[in-house]
Design a binder for these strands. Structure first.
Lengths: 148, 148
DNA sequence: CATAAATAAATCGTGCACGATTTGATCGCA
DNA sequence: TGCGATCAAATCGTGCACGATTTATTTATG
């Protein structure tokens, strides 16, 4: 078993890292024109699917915790994109809802998704397969603690 | 052509984003025991392959610029992992070299790579293919400016 | 009912990434 | 030789991610 010294180009983690950075560089200027950052865009996509999620539910879906989401959502609220309200039933819970301003962005953002898909140069089937392989990788390494 | 409202789970960019976050969560505690962050680990891997790269060369390989690398390398220098020296031939250029302390980490880090590979649950061939598909995606979207 | 445990969100500090700009050295060209 | 263009790195401000902790509310248990 050969053990050639590994370089960055050999690592699947570096592939993810650099592809994710490249994706951000692609999205950033397009989203900036709409006054959005990439994680804020993900929050909108999530809430367009179903509005009125709690901070915890958003975190569950996006893989983030309140230490990231709370300040992010505060910025979005300040920008007039969402409202933040304590639940009446359970005062610990904060519910996030879209504003009209956020809903008005929906079509522009839909354009953007197609635009990014075109940039990948993949067929629809190829993109689906790669997406699902990457999700499977994520699920495999999640909640692992190898020799923690 | 159906246009079902898209959710986060449909987006290849979200697959990358969440898989990259998961990978970081896997690496973070393991690297923290060595006093490293993930980008710092990438710098070490790059320099173990060939020592004495300039800031620009590191940036070329890792897809980062001096605004990210300079403070990162300063922290690594403060931690005694690298040295930073202005080139004599060209005073604009800063050369980064590994210290003995950094070289001493090599074997521990090699263990870590195998450990992370195990966590993926992939065969070697599967991992190689996925890695190269992700690199290909990165290369496709890099330096694109769709309707910039 | 009291109070300890559990839970949801918020707070705090650190280290990236990156756009924009600045600093300082080198190059090109009249 | 002079001097503007170019180039490498550094600086600055913003917004994530995240570990660790705190605050406030609800639930569970004696």
């Amino acid at each position: 078993m050969e053990h050639r010294p590994l370089g960055t180009q050999d690592l699947i983690c570096f592939a993810l890292y650099s592809a994710n950075n490249a994706m951000n560089r692609l999205y950033r200027p397009l989203l900036a024109r709409l006054g959005l950052t990439y994680p804020q865009y993900l929050v909108l996509v999530s809430l367009w699917d179903r509005d009125g999620k709690t901070v915890g539910q958003l975190g569950e879906e996006l893989g983030l915790e309140s230490n990231t989401l709370t300040p992010l959502l505060k910025r979005m609220a300040e920008a007039g994109l969402v409202t933040r309200a304590r639940s009446e039933a359970d005062e610990r819970v904060v519910t996030i809802a879209l504003t009209d301003k956020a809903n008005a962005l929906k079509s522009e953002v839909a354009d953007l998704v197609g635009c990014v898909f075109d940039a990948t140069g993949l067929t629809l089937d190829e993109a689906r397969r790669l997406r699902d392989d990457i999700f499977a990788l994520r699920d495999a390494i999640e909640d692992r603690d190898p020799r923690g």
